[in-house]
Nucleic acid binder design. Structure first.
Lengths: 155, 155
DNA sequence: TGCATTTCTAGAGTTATTCTAATTTAGCCT
DNA sequence: AGGCTAAATTAGAATAACTCTAGAAATGCA
C-alpha cells in the first residue's frame, strides 16, 4: 500500500512549492477532498500552484496555457477542475465586470484593485486595508467573507 | 455628438395617459444627458424610479416587469436603456457571481450584502461601513470607487 | 407636414459556461 | 497482472446572457 490518508491539515499547496516532491502534497490534498489525482488535475495544479506567485486565471487562459505546456486537457475539464479546486479551498473565485470568471490562487484574506480600463485585477494584501466597522449580518445569517474591490481609473 | 438643447418641451404623448407629472423629473434628467424621452425609456424609468425604494434589476427581470405592466419593449431595448441610464449616472452596474449583471437604482455611496444561497443583493448604507485605511492607487491612477460586498451564508 | 436623425425591434450572432452521453482511467479486489 | 466498477475525461451539443445588425418606426426640428 502506497498512500497514507493523513489527517487534514490547514495548509495550502503553496507551501509546498520549494519541496523536492512537488506533487506529493498536491496528491494528498486532493485525496482529502476526494478528488483523484488524475493526470489532468495534476497538470493543472502544477500550472496553477508551482510558479510561486499568485495568479488570476480564467478557464480560457488556463486551458491555453495547458495546451502550450503540452498537457492535453479539454476545456470542459478545465472548468470542472477549477470548480473542484475552488470547492476544495485551493482557489478562490472572483467575479467582476465583463462576464468572465476569474480564479485566484491566493486564498488568503486579501482584496483587489480593478483597473476600469483593462479589467485587470491586482492583489492587495489584507493588512493594507482596514475596515473599522461592519454592519451585522441579518438574522440567522453570518458573514462569510468581505470582498473589497478598489476600482482605479486614469489620471 | 449631437446637439441642441433648445427649450425642453414639457410634454410627450405618454404623459397624457398618466398622472399629471409623473415623468417631469425623468424627462428632464434624460434631456440633460441627451437621451430623448421616448415611450420605452419613460416606461422603464417609471418602473425603475417611481417605486420610491431602491431596486436591483437585471435586464431580464425588468423586461418581464415591463411586459406585465403592459409596455411593449424589446429585450434589446431594455439592455440598451439600462446601459444608457448607467452611462448617464441614473443607475449603477453591479456584477457579482453567477454571470448576471445587476443594475442598482441606488446611485449613492453604498455597499451590498450578497446572499450566497440565493444570490440576492441588499443595500448597506455607506455610513454603516467604515474603512479606516486604504492603499494608494498605483502611479498615474486614482481610486474611482470602493466596492464592498459582504457575503452572507446560513447559520 | 416633410425630412433627417435617433431609436426600436426581431432575429441572428457571440461568448462564456454547462450539460450529455460515450469513452477512458483510477483504484480496488482478487 | 487481470478484471471490475465508479469516477473522470472528452467532444460536441445546449444554454444563458448578452450584443449586433439592418430595416421599421418614432422623434423633433423647420
Amino acid at each position: 500500500m502506497t498512500v497514507m490518508h493523513t489527517r487534514p491539515r490547514a495548509f495550502s499547496m503553496m507551501e509546498n512549492t520549494m519541496n523536492e516532491r512537488p506533487f506529493a502534497q498536491a496528491i494528498n490534498r486532493l485525496r482529502e477532498v476526494d478528488l483523484r489525482p488524475t493526470r489532468q488535475r495534476l497538470a493543472l495544479a502544477k500550472l496553477l500552484f508551482e510558479g510561486g506567485c499568485d495568479r488570476h486565471v480564467t478557464a480560457e487562459t488556463l486551458h491555453e496555457e495547458a495546451q502550450r505546456s503540452g498537457a492535453r486537457v479539454s476545456l470542459a475539464t478545465v472548468y470542472n477542475t477549477l470548480h473542484q479546486f475552488t470547492d476544495a479551498g485551493l482557489l478562490r473565485e472572483i467575479m467582476v465586470d465583463s462576464g468572465k470568471t476569474y480564479f485566484d490562487t491566493n486564498i488568503h484574506d486579501h482584496h483587489h484593485f480593478l483597473c476600469e480600463r483593462s479589467g485587470e485585477l491586482t492583489d492587495i494584501p489584507a493588512h493594507m486595508v482596514t475596515v473599522a466597522e461592519l454592519p451585522q449580518a441579518p438574522d440567522g445569517r453570518r458573514i462569510s467573507r468581505v470582498d473589497i474591490v478598489i476600482r482605479i481609473c486614469d489620471q
